[in-house]
Nucleic acid binder design. Structure first.
Lengths: 188, 188
DNA sequence: ACCTGAACACCGTTCAAGT
DNA sequence: ACCTGAACACCGTTCAAGT
């Protein structure tokens, strides 16, 4: 039985979860699959593409926005859901952020998010709002994960995880509130 | 005349500005200084420390918060100021974000920012608010810069820079508004 | 005090050659 | 179709040895 693209992505996710982004090299992925590094390039164009596929895997785990609740709750629940998934995969915030920017991801979180803001302020503003929420979540979780990374290296003290969660909530609630208020301004 | 620590940082900033983070290697820095790579380790502990020093350089260019204006304007002006400085140094948002998380930076943007939120909601909440604003700015500019990076590689289309500025403003105004409103809630 | 030379253990990627 | 072997042009870091 020969290797398939999904096996390569599986192995990459496994290394990411167990050892972090710094150890996620093509050679390490090849080792896990008991194959030589060059073989990977039959299944994957390059490392960048592989990382985008990993990002797609991770983004696929994010719970969809709930259309049954009010916009404020739906957006905040989505943000917390995304944070949860990111925290489950080491260094994933950085990875997802750059993968999304690369344009190589299939997933686009904004298409699910923008409709929640309604068409009141226009589709463009809805995308801006979604983008801001995504930026805040990725930025905040990236900081949490990087701090964790350096804490494990003994370079600094680990922050209290309850405090980090409260700080995250604080920022997300404020942004969601401000974004929805801005939308109301435009509607009038 | 022998090399000094500042010369090493200068060279690093120059490479960052001219060629980006991907080309910022110890060997390239050494080349610019017409010296062998090993020599750098006399002036700098390692690459991580050098990157933190570069981040400090960049953060030093950020205009201080203006205490004369109202909090909302001061915070939004600071955010735009930070964005301007980051955009002037290629890939700097990513670099600054990880450098800050490493705990190796001397600069701490939050100490200047937290007082603007006032003690109304407590010092801890003020730090959370400052952190959220910093996360949003770093996240948003990182996305802009990464998109630019991949656009230059011909992988995707470059976004309109006016639109990016408006999107940034939209997010920042909303967050600032929401954070200040949350502070008021606590004060009552 | 400050730098070179040379090594060590790595990278991503390519590609002829094998099966 | 799928993989190996071997190479190419790189990395960060260390450290004896030079001046």
């Amino acid at each position: 039985m020969s290797l398939h693209r999904d096996d390569v992505i599986d192995a990459a996710v496994q290394i990411l979860d167990d050892y972090g982004l710094g150890d996620l090299s093509m050679r390490r992925v090849a080792d896990v699959l008991e194959v030589k590094a060059g073989a990977l390039y039959w299944h994957v164009a390059n490392k960048q593409t592989l990382l985008a596929a990993v990002a797609d895997r991770i983004l696929g785990e994010v719970p969809a926005v709930d259309p049954a609740v009010d916009p404020g709750s739906a957006l905040s629940a989505w943000a917390h859901g995304l944070r949860g998934v990111l925290l489950a995969h080491r260094d994933s915030a950085d990875l997802v952020a750059t993968a999304l920017a690369s344009g190589l991801c299939r997933a686009d979180p904004l298409v699910r998010l923008a409709p929640v803001f309604g068409g009141a302020a226009g589709a463009k503003v809805a995308r801006w709002s979604s983008g801001a929420l995504l930026d805040l979540v990725l930025g905040a979780v990236a900081r949490e994960q990087n701090a964790l990374l350096f804490a494990q290296l003994g370079k600094s003290v680990a922050a209290d995880s309850g405090d980090q969660a409260r700080a995250f909530s604080h920022g997300v609630e404020a942004l969601v509130r401000g974004l929805l208020a801005a939308d109301l301004d435009v509607k009038e």
